[in-house]
Design a protein around this nucleic acid. Structure first.
Length: 230
DNA sequence: AACAACATCAACCGCGCGGGC
DNA sequence: TGCCCGCGCGGTTGATGTTGT
């Protein structure tokens, strides 16, 4: 199946790529795009450049609108609760930025992804947490991790405590305690207290609701579409 | 003041999917 | 049924800003 779909060479050359600007958008370009979308709404990205006279690909227009020009974008620094939510959702969903961004009103997938890569990933690493699987990295010195606060009474705190018990036992030469504590560290689910009902347009459309989120119902609402319970 | 190294983030690219023909 | 188009996604790049020496 992929063979057929992937056979790009059968497609007509993409006219979009001819004579198109690249790089940063000018104010005039932004204004043209805004005006057009105000008048005609989103969609039909492929024909948009022709309709507006923009020398950009439809893809580029879409990205510019979604990531920068949309009026409902929040922009600015991420709040603490947004950070916490991103970390929790990432633990649950991995790098599914559009899904994660869908839980953060006014934030885009690109913004969330960038923020993760430039801030949160580093933060977790410095806390001794592997950003890929949200497990404690036992090789990191704990003193370094303590200077970073993260949420309040999270599962990370539990991990940290177990990890510290492990370290203590090690220094005491108590091997039983070491293995107990170590297994405790490994067994703590990244998010024992978080269950979510999550969808975005595409996942819904494609019936691709992540397995870990299927059949979850909830009583508490954090955002209209984010449902949490403990 | 000048330069290097590092951090940030807007924008681009390639791929996969659903839908229409 | 198979092909093509349009769209959306995640990964990556590169320009720009900031900090350190």
């Amino acid at each position: 199946m992929l063979g057929a779909r992937r056979n790009i060479s059968m497609r007509k050359p993409c006219c979009e790529k001819q004579d198109t600007n690249k790089g940063a958008w000018s104010k005039q370009e932004d204004q043209k795009l805004i005006d057009y979308i105000r008048a005609h709404g989103e969609g039909c990205w492929r024909s948009l450049p022709q309709a507006t006279g923009l020398l950009r690909s439809g893809k580029s227009c879409r990205l510019r609108w979604i990531n920068y020009l949309r009026p409902d974008l929040k922009r600015g620094n991420f709040a603490k609760d947004e950070e916490d939510l991103i970390i929790k959702l990432h633990a649950l969903l991995g790098n599914r930025w559009s899904l994660i961004a869908g839980r953060l009103p006014g934030r885009t997938d690109n913004e969330v992804k960038n923020y993760w890569n430039s801030h949160l990933r580093r933060k977790l690493i410095s806390m001794g947490i592997d950003p890929k699987n949200h497990r404690l990295n036992k090789n990191l010195p704990s003193c370094e991790q303590k200077q970073h606060g993260y949420g309040s009474s999270t599962s990370y705190d539990s991990k940290r405590q177990a990890y510290e018990r492990c370290q203590k036992a090690k220094s005491n030469g108590d091997n039983d305690q070491v293995s107990d504590a170590a297994s405790c560290v490994d067994n703590i689910s990244p998010l024992p207290d978080l269950n979510l009902l999550l969808t975005n347009g595409r996942e819904k459309q494609q019936h691709k609701m992540p397995n870990e989120l299927r059949g979850v119902e909830s009583t508490t609402t954090l955002t209209p579409t984010l449902l949490l319970f403990s």
